[in-house]
Design a binder for these strands. Sequence first.
DNA 1: TATAGTTTGTGAAAATTGGAACAAACATGA
DNA 2: TCATGTTTGTTCCAATTTTCACAAACTATA
Lengths: 217, 217
Amino acid sequence: MKKTNYTKSKKSFSPETIRRLSLYLRNLRGLKQRGVKIVSSEEITRFLNISSPQFRKDLSYFGEFGKRGVGYEVDKLAQEIEKILGINKEWKIALVGVGGLGSALLKFPGFSKFNEKITVVFDNDAGKINKVKSGIKIQDINEIQQTLSKKNIKIVMICVSPENAQEIADKAIKANARAILNFAPVSLKVPKNVYVANVDMSCELETLIYFLNKSGI
Amino acid sequence: MKKTNYTKSKKSFSPETIRRLSLYLRNLRGLKQRGVKIVSSEEITRFLNISSPQFRKDLSYFGEFGKRGVGYEVDKLAQEIEKILGINKEWKIALVGVGGLGSALLKFPGFSKFNEKITVVFDNDAGKINKVKSGIKIQDINEIQQTLSKKNIKIVMICVSPENAQEIADKAIKANARAILNFAPVSLKVPKNVYVANVDMSCELETLIYFLNKSGI
DNA sequence: TATAGTTTGTGAAAATTGGAACAAACATGA
DNA sequence: TCATGTTTGTTCCAATTTTCACAAACTATA
């Protein structure tokens, strides 16, 4: 008897695939700015430390976006990846902790462009609350619950000291945050339905030092 | 005939192992500060999203550091990992670009503590050159060659705009830098003997948004 | 000393991830 | 229209990475 293929298993991809899609997207935007209309998998991966089959396979998990014998339309593929990542819609972000790093992130062009916008800012320092920074009024951290609910914000960037990071994470989650971008050098404990990404500079630096040191100065 | 074991193949480990060692170290330092003397592989991994066999195996690539039936001495293991990573000696770091992010990194406690120190700072803005920031005098970027050579600095943090990042990387490499911690959202092209680690915030954020979006808001 | 209870270190299995190869699809030019 | 050359999408295979399971080593207690 012939087996039907209804259960054709959609092969699952690595989370690394998603990270790479983000890289591809950045590159595509650069190409677009330079006026490039068509790009091949070979060209786009040439300087990315990624193989061209890897690129094609990453895309294949989500559909067919190229034309054989030709390549990929830069603009169209960029839009498709934006759709895949979900950044075709606007995402509002709350930032907690307006110290040096928090202030820098408020000005960071990588965020303010496109559809990822820091729209609310919190701090616990009375000297900062109600001041305006980069066009945004700093709110009391104790208002986080009502503000996130009212504005329906699900993403929180934590830029406070490692000692306070867990407490802030707890407050954010209580206020229905679902995703945390953590800049504090500490491991956060969160429930399973909350996503955490760590931007861990000292970890990157130490990894770098290991390989540098091993190579003999 | 009995085979000698001189050629016992030291199994090779993943680069992820190194990244995890850095995480373990941070945790051990936290435990030490809280006065904990002994820790088991189960306890230390409990909140790290890492399994306890993974922890033990990661360490096993470098030696035996625990006592069976007991666990690991917190302070001793921390020192051993510092030795493995090479951060038991002091590493001098140059920072290029004293904008918002660069200024924040100068104050970042995760770097200034321990043996990783930013000792030189460069910028190309005449208004900033020769000013002192966080106790360090900002130098002209054009002095990078002689300064890195003279002070024997091998690690460079790049905190400039994505447009200028490649040019800065080229200058740093020409000045004999061997490791680059890149904060600019761009992929750098470097020779094979230069190590690059990227701290890529927008990439992390977009990965986060993907999973958040997929989960249904 | 012997026994029971822990926890490490590690070899082997399982799972995941990346790479190579190739058929299918398209373009071009004769 | 046909042949040639190019590039994608995908299957299969190789390599890497993680997990599992358990012997070895240690403590504590009777």
